[in-house]
């Protein structure tokens, strides 16, 4: 909960991780260079005093996460964006099973994302059903650029992706987080291209598609799609980090998103542990959209808009009643200690 001038703002971190990138978990050299790439994002865009040592960044553990999100970081609930990367990490990077360890301890604090890989085709259907039955899965995180058996990625409108989306919907899933972000290692297939979201969003109008990292570096293509499809939302992680080092671009990105999507479709995300919610939220709350951008785009980042972005929009997507949830959280282990 962030309190501003006596107003409480409920915070859902729509994109955070509980990863294990310890060297013992690296399967290949890619396990090492993956986490080093993340570390480069972390150290180049974080304020200097927020930069971690590399070994802590590889595996920070539960106590650090709980402090950084809930005790010091104003976050009420976090969305565990499971990321598997079994070709790079022996036990996975942060699979739903790894993530569920922390969710089990703090069940009301986390939304847990599962996943599917359409390249598993028929063979993966039973595993998907088991995951849905055995874990408290709230949403799905899809990673279209993931490597698998020589394939460098897939698309949301592949026939088997549609079969899995239909099955997910049948099993009660409403929200699909799709990673479309900075090109990490898609080859010529350009697996982070956002156009496949357009097809899936049209063909699955009952599902919501939260495009993580607002499609950066495809912000423009993302805006055209999200402006047309009522069920496409912006996940702001990565873009959020600009608020510190590149505040002007942050303002321009936010102005464009407000212009094309409006204030009800933008959702905060930290991408923790790449960036930490405490400084992101403090700088975001202190940030005012520059006057020239307000006038040019006819939008504003008011307290009301910030409240929607920080938590209300994501709460609505997941059917969370903020008042009731606040009461529940005040009584769990973390909430009780915060109050004490």
């Amino acid at each position: 909960m962030y309190t501003h001038d006596g107003h409480d703002l409920f915070v859902i971190d729509g994109h955070m991780h509980f990863w294990d990138a310890n060297p013992e978990n690296w399967r290949t050299k890619y396990g090492e260079s993956w986490i080093k790439c993340f570390y480069a994002f972390h150290s180049s865009l974080s304020p200097a005093e927020e930069v971690w040592p590399f070994d802590k960044f590889c595996r920070y553990g539960e106590a650090v996460l709980v402090d950084d999100l809930f005790r010091n970081g104003y976050v009420d609930m976090g969305t565990l964006n499971s990321t598997y990367l079994y070709e790079f990490y022996k036990n996975g990077f942060n699979s739903h099973a790894q993530n569920n360890v922390i969710k089990t301890k703090y069940p009301n604090r986390f939304l847990l994302c599962g996943s599917f890989d359409p390249r598993d085709e028929e063979a993966g259907v039973d595993a998907f059903r088991s995951m849905m039955a055995d874990y408290p899965i709230n949403g799905l995180k899809l990673y279209t650029a993931e490597w698998k058996d020589g394939s460098r990625g897939w698309r949301l409108n592949d026939p088997w992706a549609y079969k899995y989306l239909a099955l997910a919907q049948e099993l009660g899933i409403k929200n699909i987080h799709v990673h479309k972000g900075p090109t990490v290692y898609p080859l010529s297939a350009d697996a982070f291209d956002v156009h496949d979201v357009d097809y899936a969003a049209t063909d699955f109008p009952e599902l919501n598609f939260i495009v993580e990292h607002v499609g950066l570096p495809r912000l423009d293509d993302f805006c055209w799609i999200a402006a047309q499809e009522s069920n496409v939302y912006a996940g702001l992680s990565v873009a959020m980090a600009f608020v510190h080092l590149r505040p002007r671009y942050f303002g321009e990105i936010i102005a464009n998103l407000l212009f094309w999507l409006g204030p009800d479709k933008l959702c905060f995300g930290s991408d923790y542990a790449i960036w930490s919610p405490k400084w992101l939220i403090e700088k975001f709350m202190a940030y005012q959209l520059p006057e020239d951008l307000k006038q040019e785009y006819h939008v504003d980042l008011t307290l009301d808009v910030k409240r929607k972005i920080l938590g209300e929009n994501m709460a609505r997507l997941y059917g969370i009643d903020v008042a009731a949830q606040t009461a529940i959280l005040s009584r769990d282990g973390i909430g009780a200690r915060l109050a004490g």
Partner: peptide
């Protein structure tokens, strides 16, 4: 305008990453 902002923001992101490599070539990157 949106296309221009997207390209400039990406350029800014790349510059931030690169400046880190310049500042500390020994850092893991």
């Amino acid at each position: 305008r949106t296309v221009r902002v997207a390209m400039e923001a990406n350029g800014s992101f790349c510059r931030a990453l690169l400046s880190l490599r310049d500042a500390n070539p020994a850092a893991p990157a």
